[in-house]
Amino acid sequence: MTAAARVSGALLGLWAGAALLSPWLAPATDAIDLDRILAPPGAAGWLGFDEVGRPVADRLLEGARTSLVVAVAVVAVSAVIGTVVGAAAAYLGGAVDRWLGRLIDVFLAFPGLLLAIALAALMGPGLANLVVALAAVGWVGYARLARGQVLALRRREHVLAAESLGVRPGRILLRHLLPLMAAPLIVEATFGFAGAVLAEAGMSFLGIGVQPPAPSWGGMIREGVRYMLVAPHLVLAPGLALSAVALATNLWGDWLRDRLDVRRSGLTARRRT
């Protein structure tokens, strides 16, 4: 394990720990102290207080929970849907593959964040809608990857052998194909995780994600920008946390990709044609 992977792993562990323990570590998320409005970091609160006198440190921890929950949900939902759609298209072939392939192309042609913004705007703000909007965009990457993998693997001898023994398609996909295509899917999911954390924060920043008073790092930056000149700690703390998590996830993904020996999708394969 490289030093970078160790550091990023430790950071991600810290983030997950903070998120899981936040109800106990940060009980004062919504506690308002009118005497400390916009107070800078100090003895009373080590990250200072926000524009209505709530402790920034507590809100930061609770925000970690929000971003972890959203990212896990988005990655889980989109990875499962995308893998099933992509694998089914490639395995069943024929008309199913043609139509699913077209659907994948249209979604790939759509700039992802924009579609998520449009969806979230239409469905209204909220945690569940945010997850739905991001998953509605996120599945397509896994679908493309799974489709390519199954196309490449489905003529392998062990698959043909299983077919001739009468094993049903669902079981073949699950038991004979999925283990072989897990590595690139895991790498995709790691980068997708970083993407989901940044997308949640970005949409909360735009005001169409997590709604106040529920704390979210993006929402904290949105509120903090208004008081940036008098209380820069409101913007610095959540931004630093967010960047650190994204950086750690990207580093982890890089390490995982080298470790599992996966080439980044599409580009190199295409160059070789």
Partner: peptide, 10 residues
């Protein structure tokens, strides 16, 4: 790649 634009901007 990791620093989001809505933080870099401010």
């Amino acid at each position: 790649q990791s620093v989001p634009s809505f933080w870099l901007g401010p």
